[in-house]
Amino acid sequence: MAENKVEIIEKSTKQYIVVQIGSEKYGIDIGYVDNIVRMQKITRVPKAQVYFKGIINLRGEIVPVMSIRTKMGLDDDVFTNASRIIILKIEDRGALGVIVDEVCEVVTLSEDEIDRSAVSANNAKDNFINGIGKNGDALISLFEINAIIDERENA
């Protein structure tokens, strides 16, 4: 009996890495995350899309790094000791780094802890979000990974 219960829970939950960007907390589906690395020297690529900060050397691989702040239309990144680059691994397109202010924790959310209706298409920032996760008192905006990797830029 007990075992069965565990299985059922596992099926309907997902783990998210909770990161801080500005004053808000965002969640990234752990399935997409390959790696989290400390901030390092980013080589600027001239004439690239503005939200691409440049490229880094990740153990011999060249990985482009994106500023999610620029893409979402927020203030510029301020790099601190807590800044991290989340390396996302996306099928067919390879690795992509996303700069975040801080990595907080990993949470497990079940589907009924996620509010999908709070997302409206009108809010520009919401385009990158597919739901709001409720972890105790804290609200976590869950990133829609495909929107992040999409060409589209927030005006």
Binding site: T43, V45, Q49
Partner: peptide
């Protein structure tokens, strides 16, 4: 290669990693 994300960039044909790990 610079990968598939960064585009519109014809000036740069690729990247390389130098001895000190710099790109």
């Amino acid at each position: 290669s610079l990968g598939k994300y960064i585009n519109g960039n014809k000036l740069i044909s690729g990247a390389t990693i130098l001895g000190d790990g710099e790109v």
